[in-house]
Design a protein around this nucleic acid. Sequence first.
DNA 1: CCTGCAATGTTGCATATACAACTTGAGTGA
DNA 2: TCACTCAAGTTGTATATGCAACATTGCAGG
Lengths: 246, 246
Amino acid sequence: MLNQDTGLSARDAKDRGAPIYEWMKTEIRARIETGEWPVNHRIPSENELVESLGVSRMTANRALRELANEGVITRVQGKGSFVAPKKRSAPALGVRNIADEILERGSVHRTELILAQSETCGHELAAALELDVGAQCFHSVMVHNEDDVPIQLEDRFVNPAIAPDYLEQDFAATTPNAFLTSIAPIAKTEQFIEAVLPQPWECKVLAIARFEPCILIRRRTWSHDRVVTSVRLLYPGSRYRLQSNF
Amino acid sequence: MLNQDTGLSARDAKDRGAPIYEWMKTEIRARIETGEWPVNHRIPSENELVESLGVSRMTANRALRELANEGVITRVQGKGSFVAPKKRSAPALGVRNIADEILERGSVHRTELILAQSETCGHELAAALELDVGAQCFHSVMVHNEDDVPIQLEDRFVNPAIAPDYLEQDFAATTPNAFLTSIAPIAKTEQFIEAVLPQPWECKVLAIARFEPCILIRRRTWSHDRVVTSVRLLYPGSRYRLQSNF
DNA sequence: CCTGCAATGTTGCATATACAACTTGAGTGA
DNA sequence: TCACTCAAGTTGTATATGCAACATTGCAGG
């Protein structure tokens, strides 16, 4: 049931799996993401949250303080808390759909599915997806071709709790990126860019030489504080470069 | 006076300008940066900090929790808090000063000047700097070391119309980046990120193997519609990665 | 009219307390 | 010896309370 004063729902104390302050953060973030609370909208004060949710002020304070540190909201002493303006996004380094990118260049995009299966999380993978060791996750590997030239090797792991029917998708028609962003709005992205030498099997599927340097992008995306996907994108250095002007 | 139990000093309550938890954070960070507390060193527990500093546990908890969120330390429930391993990663967006970046990681920055001279623009260089072919420009090459490990090769061309006394700078004290941004505010930046194999002479000055893949950033910056500088930044792939979260 | 001040509401910080969850090591009993 | 239990230490979370700092509003008095 919705609380008219704050717009937040009073959760039954029993079904909480996450800490209260985390739950408050996700609820507030959700209202911002859906547009229910637009930019500069005033967020319920700490005391209002105390009243409507039955939490202590320190807990409400922690939730709002952490959201402020993350840049989601801004707080002004004596005035209140407000939805922060959206961050600028970097065109070239943001999460682009490789298919759109290729089409914009006037080329033909074609994918080659190499693998799509369910796997058991090992230690490292569990940490990356923030799941438990031994849990199931989805794994897909595919090559994206531009005019029949391999240009990106996509090695992706997906959280099945968020996309339970991931493996049933037709990846020739919809890229994993497009599918996942359609069912889970991206709230946060972590991205590392490295230069590496490819593995032998990667050389084979990308049709490149053994010592061709490649750009490796390792990216994780979150939605509602849960990891949606962890992906490795490998680009042959001779065929691809990143651009970021500002 | 130093407290033997924690290595932290009990501050006089009067001279505190910052909140206690912020003061604790800076004190702990200082001990990590100076190497007094090396990587994996155990940090005083919350209760030890309570004892030695006379603060409440919630305050100590907040200081340590925020340091953990920032990646400075790692905390394990039931075990304790420990100095986190350094991560050598940099934001891919924006023009950072490599010296600042290294200092922030608590390492020592040292440059090695390889070349600093005036040259005559060829065709390609003239186009890059938006000058006439045959005009003079400045050329500097240097290596930036982090803890005496070569981490960036900087190959820079500078427009003499904007920085006429560029070659007279002491590049050991002030990086070219810091000098140029101080005399010409950056209005626009064009930046390409590639993966390449280094040239033999580049391998030599960076002390890397022949087939070590490198990240190459080619960047041009404008001020008042004129090109200030065109620079190639070469990073060994095994020692450096770019980070861009949003 | 307007200046000054008090009241109220807001965030920021610090403390004391309590319980839960996890780790480690010591001890105990089969 | 092995397995189990228990105690102590540590972090994680939640609450209640108090005071400080800042912003806004309204009111009293000139």
